[in-house]
């Protein structure tokens, strides 16, 4: 409960009314104080009917999201789908138009400083104080956290091979991103919210980040990680939620989702193969034969296809992971059934 206007007290002018408002306010404040304490077992992140609109544009529409404690949750969607909007609401940088969000059991605005102490955040459009060196910037940010994470700066920088003593403006995009990662991770927060953490970093750093996030999960930290590229987070995410046009399309276990997504398999044989040998295979949706090559679209395990192909001489076989668009298509296709 929150009282936002005190105009009634002033207009009424009566002392009694004023006293009553003061009492109500005190109670409201006490309520908020209680609210501030996280409930045990509350989901680290929970949103209910979250909406955000900018003028006519609906950036988020009735988003219901619930993270489980200790999981790595991948938040996937194309650019402009509403990932950053959601995340910035969770960080109390923007306020929802309607609906509500709870982070570690409290509303972001009510949680305030105490809540942010327990969160590590990497902004999507990371901008740093370019004139500082990473060492100075990270020391400053750690000081704002009362020194938390100060001792982790060196080891984290070493693991991500980040140079600490060059001015940030001379660093590459990937190296700037590393600075952002270090500041998000250094104080080992209960909750990590990383908005497109892998953008601009090379595969080696991506690998190291995955290792760091695995360790975070082992320590019991919860991770929300957003991306517009599925392959960047499918290895690390326990579950993923797919957002499109401000709406959550699906939330599922990574494994289950992969099992029902279509992938393309291309096989080159030493000679022509009879298409009839590949008819009626479970999971194979499409088969195209061109000379010695055959292309298949398969949903789920490719076991049957492999065994059918093994009867012939196979030169090469490639299986391409579905990209985000293909994933959407399969979800929409299978969504009809579900």
């Amino acid at each position: 409960m929150r009282i936002t206007s005190s105009s009634c007290a002033r207009e009424g002018g009566s002392r009694e009314l004023g006293r009553r408002v003061a009492r109500l306010r005190r109670r409201a404040r006490a309520d908020r104080q209680v609210e501030r304490r996280p409930l045990p077992g509350a989901p680290p992140i929970e949103t209910e009917g979250l909406c955000k609109s900018y003028g006519d544009k609906q950036a988020l529409l009735n988003l219901d999201l619930a993270l489980r404690s200790g999981e790595v949750f991948g938040f996937i969607g194309p650019n402009g789908a509403g990932k950053t909007t959601t995340i910035r609401i969770l960080m109390d940088l923007i306020r929802p138009s309607s609906g509500c969000a709870r982070v570690l059991g409290v509303e972001p605005r009510a949680g305030g400083v105490e809540l942010r102490r327990r969160i590590g955040y990497l902004p999507g459009e990371l901008a740093l104080y370019e004139e500082l060196t990473p060492r100075r910037l990270l020391a400053h940010l750690s000081a704002l956290r009362a020194g938390a994470g100060q001792r982790s700066i060196e080891p984290l920088a070493k693991r991500l091979s980040l140079e600490l003593d060059r001015p940030i403006r001379t660093l590459s995009r990937g190296n700037k991103q590393k600075v952002g990662l270090v500041q998000a991770l250094m104080h080992e927060p209960e909750l990590l919210i990383l908005d497109e953490p892998t953008s601009g970093v090379d595969p080696l750093v991506q690998h190291e980040l995955h290792a760091l996030l695995s360790e975070a999960r082992e320590r019991g930290q919860t991770v929300l990680i957003s991306s517009h590229v599925l392959s960047e987070i499918e290895r690390i995410a326990d579950r993923i939620g797919i957002i499109r046009d401000g709406q959550l399309v699906v939330v599922d276990d990574m494994g289950a989702l992969k099992a029902r997504t279509a992938r393309q398999v291309e096989i080159h044989f030493s000679g022509r193969v009879p298409p009839s040998a590949f008819e009626g295979l479970p999971g194979v949706r499409e088969a195209r034969f061109e000379g010695d090559a055959a292309r298949f679209v398969v949903i789920g395990p490719i076991d049957a296809l492999v065994k059918a192909a093994a009867r012939f001489e196979v030169l090469t076989m490639t299986s391409r992971e579905p990209d985000l668009e293909e994933l959407f298509l399969t979800i929409y296709a299978s969504g009809q059934r579900a």
């Binding site: 109390d92 942010r116 459009e125 740093l128 104080y129 940010l141």
Partner: peptide, 13 residues
């Protein structure tokens, strides 16, 4: 400069 996201992510009101 868009540095405000980084600043306000800290425990500072």
């Amino acid at each position: 400069r868009r540095t405000i996201d980084l600043l306000l992510a800290n425990p500072i009101s």
